[in-house]
């Protein structure tokens, strides 16, 4: 079956895409929603514009759509284009626990007559973290939005040490960040033919709200073309 992957650039949607490909599904295109507002309930926000470079690294086409107030309408339009242009019959998403997010993806797919797959659904959050690292994913933390996650994490690559620390905070946060406690950006995963290298980035952090972002200013592709 030919699929479109709803792709935020973070670890969860990247993992879901890998699961689909491994099971023999033909992921023909990525669909990436780029929120115009920072408080999007539906989409992962920081650095969403760089998903085009991740798509290039994987050798996949991408449909990027700006999202204003009507997030569901924008999603429908993007999926309609994926179905029309690439002949996809379904979508695969990285939804793990959010019924708000999952229900909207399900409804959009249903309206367009597309299958909807959420292979990480209800997966243990620690298992998500472990699986990404075991598969050799390289990713950084691009946003934090919960105590006690601090400024020091912004831009940091997630390695086993960071993962253990996040898992140890499960009393305070969802260890995989599914509740928006933190966001990630993938620089490399097994389906990437090339790696991304961040050349320049800025941190913004508020000690009052325990929220911050790592904004990627310049990133390049490295490795064989």
């Amino acid at each position: 079956m030919r699929l479109a992957a709803l792709f935020s650039g973070g670890k969860d949607s990247t993992l879901a895409l890998h699961r689909a490909v491994e099971l023999g599904y033909d992921v023909a295109v990525l669909v990436s929603m780029v929120p115009e507002r920072g408080d999007s309930m539906l989409y992962h926000v920081p650095n969403a514009q760089w998903t085009a470079l991740q798509a290039e690294a994987m050798g996949l086409p991408i449909i990027q759509r700006g999202v204003g107030d009507d997030e569901e309408a924008a999603l429908l339009e993007a999926l309609r284009e994926a179905a029309r242009t690439y002949g996809v019959e379904g979508i695969v998403t990285g939804a793990v626990r959010s019924t708000f997010q999952a229900a909207r993806f399900q409804r959009a797919a249903r309206r367009l007559g597309l299958w909807c797959f959420n292979p990480l659904w209800l997966m243990d959050q620690r298992a998500v973290l472990r699986e990404t690292l075991e598969r050799g994913f390289k990713y950084i933390i691009t946003a934090v939005a919960a105590y006690p996650l601090g400024e020091d994490l912004l831009g940091r690559p997630v390695d086993w040490g960071i993962a253990e620390a996040l898992m140890g905070l499960s009393e305070y946060i969802n260890p995989a960040g599914e509740g928006g406690e933190y966001e990630t950006f993938v620089l490399y995963a097994p389906l990437f033919k090339r790696r991304l290298r961040i050349v320049e980035g800025d941190r913004k952090y508020s000690r009052e709200t325990y929220t911050g972002e790592y904004i990627i200013r310049r990133v390049v592709l490295e490795g064989p073309t």
């Binding site: 299958w115 292979p119 659904w121």
Partner: peptide, 15 residues
């Protein structure tokens, strides 16, 4: 009927 749905609908029950 789709293998990609097994993790979504069956694995949580197994867990």
């Amino acid at each position: 009927v789709q293998r990609l749905h097994m993790d979504e609908f069956v694995r949580p029950l197994v867990d």
